[in-house]
Amino acid sequence: MDMLELLRKLPEEIEEAIEFDVPYFDEKPPRIFLGGMGGSAISGDVAKLVMSDLDIPFEIIRDYRLPAYAGKKDILIASSYSGNTEESLSLYEDGLSRNMKILVITSGGKLLQLAQKNNNFYVKIPSGFPPRTALGYLFTPIVMTCVKSGFVGHHHIENLKKLPDFMRNLHKEFESVDSLPLEIAKKLYFRFPIIYTSRRMYPVGLRWKAQINENAKAFAHIMDFPEMNHNEIAGIKNPKERVEALWAIFMEDVDDYERIKLRFRHTMDLIKDSVMGITHILSRGNSIAERVFYLIYLGDYVSYYLAKLYNEDPVAIPRIDELKRRLSK
Rank of each mutant, 00 (worst) to 15 (best):
F166I: 05
K101I: 09
N213C: 10
E15D: 12
E244M: 01
L327R: 11
I184H: 07
Y196V: 00
I32D: 03
F20D: 08
I56L: 10
H171F: 14
E175G: 09
D255H: 14
S198Q: 01
S79T: 08
Y81F: 08
P203Q: 00
V50I: 15
M268V: 04
I14G: 08
E13D: 10
D2Q: 11
L323S: 13
G35L: 06
V104R: 09
F174H: 11
D21N: 05
V292M: 05
P318G: 14
Y294M: 08
D165P: 03
M268K: 12
R325P: 15
M251D: 00
N159Q: 14
D94A: 11
S43F: 02
D74F: 11
I102R: 03
E290Q: 10
L160W: 03
H266T: 13
E12R: 09
S52I: 12
E5M: 07
D253H: 14
F129D: 15
E244Q: 03
G36Q: 03
I14M: 06
Y294N: 12
H155K: 15
P141E: 04
L182W: 14
S198C: 05
E258K: 15
D178C: 11
Y92E: 08
L54Q: 01
D321G: 14
S80D: 10
R326A: 12
D269W: 06
Y301K: 01
Y305G: 11
S328L: 04
L7E: 11
M268N: 05
G277Y: 10
E227F: 06
L114Q: 12
F219L: 15
S176L: 03
D273Q: 08
L262I: 11
A316I: 15
R200P: 05
R259L: 13
Q211H: 03
Y196W: 00
P23W: 00
I14W: 02
V104Q: 00
T133Q: 13
I142N: 06
L246M: 09
W247N: 07
K237Q: 13
H221C: 03
K148T: 02
A47F: 04
G235V: 15
A220M: 01
K72E: 12
K187S: 15
P30I: 09
G109I: 04
L54H: 03
L170M: 04
Y137M: 03
N84A: 06
R259H: 10
R326G: 12
S127R: 11
L188F: 06
A234R: 10
M268T: 02
E312F: 13
G35F: 10
Y310C: 15
S82N: 09
I278M: 09
P181W: 14
T140I: 12
A78P: 11
S82V: 03
F190K: 15
L262C: 05
A234P: 01
L138V: 02
N119S: 12
T85A: 00
I184C: 07
P314Q: 08
R65I: 12
A134G: 06
Y304S: 02
A234Q: 06
G285Q: 07
E5Q: 09
K48N: 13
G95Q: 11
Q113D: 14
V292I: 05
D55V: 06
Q211G: 00
Y294C: 08
Q116F: 06
P29F: 01
L270K: 08
A248F: 09
T279W: 04
I317P: 02
N120K: 14
Y310G: 13
H266A: 15
R8H: 11
